[in-house]
Amino acid sequence: MNTSTQISKAKINRRLLKDKLFTYAIIFLAFLSSVPLFLILFELIKKGYRQINISFFYKVAPDTMEAMVAVKNNEIIPGGIANGIVGTLIIVGMASLIAIPLGIICGMYLAENSKGKFAGVVRFIVDMLQGVPSIVLGVIGYIWVVKPITGGFSGLAGSVALSIMMLPSIVRSTEETLKMIPDTLKEAALSLGVPYHKTMLRVILPSGISGILTGVILGISRIAGETAPLMLTALGSAAISTDITKPSSAIPLLVWEFYNDPNLVNMIWSASLFLLILILILNLSAKAIAKKWKVQY
């Protein structure tokens, strides 16, 4: 037998070993990439759980003097992040009110005219928008709203800046979802004499609801933790503020404020923990909605 065409046993074994090593390396690296999240959660819970009680949710951020006394006596700091929670709810809510209709309509246009020249330009711009640094959006909010409209820092300015930020995710998820919906559905409605706009709003859009909602929620979770744009727009407020034309606090802004006050450092962990859990819940619910509300064609 010709020995040169045979592969020696040792060679085969070496190959099998390489195969195995490669597999384990991949598993290990995959595991490694999921470690940071758990480390972060662990760290935040360890340092922050003490501060989280009922008053954490209804009291405003503590006074620095009170906090100093509490820290000295080794007690928990009296106070919470209620001004931040209310501020975040209002700012994010307003941003959603602006971005959701705009984003869905834009996504619908892109899906319907996928090959149009103008649609191509719009799609390109939306993609670019995704890459605009958040601090730049803060500057824009300052120039567009703070100076000319509210005449001072305001929650509204923050909402405008954040709405621009969440727009791309809504536009693209709407577009991608609607493109997946078979044309036969549109034909079915049109053949019943249903006008085009009603076909889109009452047949096509509801059929893509799960994908669109997922995009909306991911957009919200993306902006809920944004700090930089809010520094230049909403600024922050020590009291609970429901007036959108006045400065307003937000959870990420509070984290920044706590960081800047040596007496409040302990509050960083609990506020961060709360913010992180909020965003995790949003992400999980996006996944759940995508699964549960999926429309079967």
Binding site: L190, R202, V203, V295
Partner: peptide, 30 residues
């Protein structure tokens, strides 16, 4: 299209509607 109806190659009932609503979809959607 209200006078000349159409049925397509692949069945295409409206996925978000019940059987009941599908039948009267022409009225509902208009």
């Amino acid at each position: 299209r209200r006078k000349i109806g159409m049925v397509f190659q692949r069945p295409n009932p409206f996925p978000t509607m019940s059987i009941y609503d599908n039948v009267i979809a022409g009225y509902l959607l208009n």
